[in-house]
Amino acid sequence: MSNIQVSPPPPGIEGSGFFATTFEKAVGLARANSIWPLPFATSCCGIEFMATMAANYDLARFGSERISFSPRQADLLMVTGTIAKKMGPVLRQVYLQMAEPRWVIAVGACASSGGIFDTYSVLQGIDKVIPVDVYVPGCPPRPEQLIDGILKIQELVKNEPLKRRESPEYKALLASYGIE
């Protein structure tokens, strides 16, 4: 037998022929293991993202088989690389085009904080324009780190309450970025 591990089911009540759990848990499980990432690859980290996608690290193992290049069909916005001020509005627009629920991961030092480019032309972290869920450090992060970031996102997705996106806190968060 191979050493493939089947992920455990969420807590619930099991009987002969049925398994009952909360709707939230079931949806979370389904969502977490079928994330469609949108690689917003701008620079060096994009090459490491390609390495993560490719055969050696194989991101598809974690349910992200399909890389969605269209923001409309993506769940996860992966900002991999430097975002210049000129690019900021474009990034924001891509974020707005994504449908809820959406998650954002800032890959690399540049996307997280501007990195080594503390200059007049670079946005000092993408969290200035859009809310971010997970930050992956590194310049560029190794594929293992990137996968770790995706797994962190999966944890978030799995445990997210269904009503979170309608909650006043979430609305307030978006409002703080000027998003209706």
Binding site: G114, D118, T119, Y120, V122, Q124
Partner: peptide, 11 residues
């Protein structure tokens, strides 16, 4: 005469 760093940084 112009600085390297972003002058609008607050953090």
């Amino acid at each position: 005469e112009y600085p390297l760093e972003d002058q609008t940084r607050t953090d």
